[in-house]
């Protein structure tokens, strides 16, 4: 029969051992523009000020052959890694680095193109990456 304080301690030690050398990093730039946020946009009807009133000012404005093009940008970059050499720190003066890490940079954009009168001509998202888990260190 294991005393409860010992089983609790073992559980904590196991958790610590499992988490040893783990790092989780996340960088979020700007708010996500979801399809539901842009459902109000109608080609041939909606104007630039109406789009800005709903989505805010774009991150970039470009000139195109037919009129202006506005770009909204955002990203949610996730990175995690495990340093398996970290465990050596507990019993060795030297800990070799044995790290597996992976980073997924998702720079996404929403484009709105206008005609010369400032009315929406076309709009769309850049290729949308599948939602990745935050803990994904396996690089192979």
């Amino acid at each position: 029969m294991i005393p409860s304080w010992l089983s609790g301690g073992l559980l904590v030690a196991l958790c610590v051992a499992l988490m040893t050398g783990c790092s989780v990093r996340r960088v979020v730039v700007n708010d996500v523009v979801a399809p539901s946020n842009v459902a109000f946009i109608q080609s041939g009807t909606t104007t630039l000020p109406q789009v800005v009133a709903q989505l805010g000012a774009p991150d970039e404005i470009l000139d195109s052959e037919f009129g202006l093009a506005t770009i909204y940008q955002w990203s949610d970059t996730k990175a995690s890694g495990v340093d398996f050499g970290f465990i050596f720190r507990f019993f060795s003066p030297y800990s070799p680095s044995m790290t597996l890490a992976k980073t997924g940079i998702d720079m996404e954009q929403f484009h709105v193109h206008y005609d010369s009168q400032g009315v929406v001509r076309m709009f769309g998202f850049t290729r949308h990456e599948p939602i990745r888990p935050l803990l994904w260190f396996w690089p192979f």
Binding site: S23, V24, R26, P58
Partner: peptide, 27 residues
């Protein structure tokens, strides 16, 4: 000692001032 958490949030303010051919602010 055993675990690292890092998170960064970045946001931007943007202002665009449009000028018409007459040199005055249009939008």
């Amino acid at each position: 000692l055993v675990l690292n958490f890092v998170r960064m949030e970045i946001k931007s303010d943007n202002l665009y001032v449009f000028f018409g051919r007459n040199g005055l602010v249009e939008e």
